[in-house]
Design a protein around this nucleic acid. Sequence first.
DNA 1: CCAATGACTAATC
DNA 2: CGATTAGCCATTG
Length: 117
Amino acid sequence: MKKTAGSAFERAVWKAMERIPRGSVTTYGDIARYLGTRAVRAVGTAVGKNPYAPEVPCHRVVRSDGSVGRYSGEGGVERKIALLREEGVAVRDGKIVDFDSIRYRFDDQQVTRSGGS
DNA sequence: CCAATGACTAATC
DNA sequence: CGATTAGCCATTG
């Protein structure tokens, strides 16, 4: 397997998605920020080109407003919602329930947190 | 290199 | 809350 697909940017996006823990979701903007870029649009496009779906949790990427967004895989958005529900993510009317609570912000940066707050 | 496109986002009406 | 506008950046023809 593995076959250097897509461009470096796209590969970086797919790699970032693998970081998303099961039962959580993230946004395109967060991924862009994690990659150190503001190309939210480009990130969305790269995720849509994900050739490893659903092996790669591209379905855990949703919009900034909590809506599931789109899904190019089989079954479309409905399939995306089904996958999320199987992972314990509640979805209602096309939106993530408790979105802010389960939203993954790539915050797992070391424990070196200066004591928070 | 220029023009068009897109699994986006935020602001306005 | 829904529809529209404008800004955004990388990929592709």
